[in-house]
Design a protein around this nucleic acid. Sequence first.
RNA 1: GGCCCCAUCGUCUAGCCCGGUCUAGGACACCACCUUUUCAUGGUGGGGACAGGGGUUCGAAUCCCCUUGGGGUCACCA
Length: 552
Amino acid sequence: MPAAGSIVTRFAPSPSGHLHVGGARTALFCWAYAKGRGGTFLLRIEDTDQKRSSDAASLGFLKDLKWLGIDWNEGPEFDGCGGGDRGPYFQSERLEIYNAHLQRLLESGSAYYAFETTEDLDTKRSAAKAKGVAYRYDRTESVNRTKQEVAELLASGRSAVIRFRTPEGPITIQDAILGQATLPAGEVDDFVLRKADGFPTYHFAVVVDDELMGVTHVLRAQEHFNNTAKHMVLQDSLGFRRPTYGHLPLIFNPDGSKMSKRDKDKMLRKAVTERKISQPPTNTVSQEEFSAWLAGKNVQLEHAQADRLAAALQVVLPEINVDDFRRSGYLPEVMCNFLALNGWSPGENREKFDNAFLAQAFDLSRVVKTPAKFDRVKLLSFNCDAITGMPRDEFVNRVRNHGHAYHSDFMRKLSAEQFDTLAAASHERSKTLDDLFRLNRFLVTDDQAVCFDSKAAEKNLQGAEPNGLSHLRALRGVLSEVKAWDAPSLEGAIKAFAEAHTAGQLGKVAQPLRVAVSGTTVSPPIFDTLVILGRGSTLARVDRALQMFGTH
RNA sequence: GGCCCCAUCGUCUAGCCCGGUCUAGGACACCACCUUUUCAUGGUGGGGACAGGGGUUCGAAUCCCCUUGGGGUCACCA
């Protein structure tokens, strides 16, 4: 239990889907605020929506937070984090607590049972909309029922919710970031506290838990701003303290649209439509699923399906969730740094910092009020800087771990020595931990299966004599004679060859060789590439290229 | 549509609260040139913003008002 008067912040995700960047940023700020002030950062899982919540999603959130380096002092126990005596930290396990407080409201007349069905309410809502009037819940019928009548209805098994009897009058919200705002009287209607399934709504659970868990500062996304009014009137009715609120600006896509998992479907649909594909590529999704997905814009593919389809179509899906970025090879410390820069800045032209700095420098007064567009290009640049700036050993280790996690096939095909050579050679040209695997497939394909890019071959192997092919033919002899198959020896031999045959222009020799062994014009430095391939593969590939492009 | 909030380069932002030091700073992106065995990196230089209109003031990016624009919210989702 933290000392009295100390700061308690919390991150309270609802466990559906994956942790996305906006949520991660909220968690990071909550963490930093508490951390920098010797307070407590608490994690609570808001799983009151039985339909959407899942244990798998909860676990995913914990893992993602852990990966980002965001540790929680209290909350679900996981990998050294969590615990605490103000639990349980899953709202689904706190129903008795909510019911006890609900009882108080019911008895004082601040809450009441309501029996309208969802359909009833929908009808009223659309009627209001048709008239161009704002819909407000009408409490008259519910409130006029006697206790007796309510009891009878309940006894008869009628489905019921409990609503809050919102007091009259305007409500002024005090916000540490946005200042204050006053909602006119009547803006907040009688919202639901307990759903028909017996679970509390977000509004009720959040107010009860923040009080019971001693939360002093609520930092959350701006979409919750208006909800704060509801929470405040509830706190008053329950006799609760009022935490300090700070509403963080939202994070959007570069085009201003909301960042959502649907962006992946959108991109895939576009690719499918453009290429006029009517049948799913093999081993991706079933024909029925594919057709349904294509037909309905709101139909979403499962993660795994989307990944398979993207792979088959060679489309790179946009990263939305934290684990997408992880898979794409972004570093957790860079994610945190960049996320923090969306909506906050330390000033003094400082942009690069770690979480320790963030914790000591973060302050609500420097949080920006305007929504941010998430710029993946800048993130990539930050990632590149961090990767090229780290020690060689560290890069090799981290890229190896990434490989084991996401590219086990690739890792299996290279020896430890080969991999380390490749990693070292790839360090300075890697923008992500994934680049190495994406760009060097040719190293793990069979010598006879190397796929040649026709433009690359045309430009570097064919053409008027003396062309690349003729150099390659002559170079083949040199390569087979090189005594030690290591980078210095190869460099010596090939440079000597270039001196003799291309007036020292290494490119004239290196490029044909590169195309011959990789199929394209891009690879790690040519000498390293040859070392990784070994003499056998190199010569086999050169021979194959000579054969394929040499005969007419 | 009602209500609430916001408004600086293409993007993230510094400056704004406490008007002059702002011919508005940084970063990413962009353009040009240079370096380079490919790719990438790196180096040098360049273009690029105070949404518009009214006030207040000797003086406004900074304070006030209006307009416009953007966002949020109006669920038995959180």
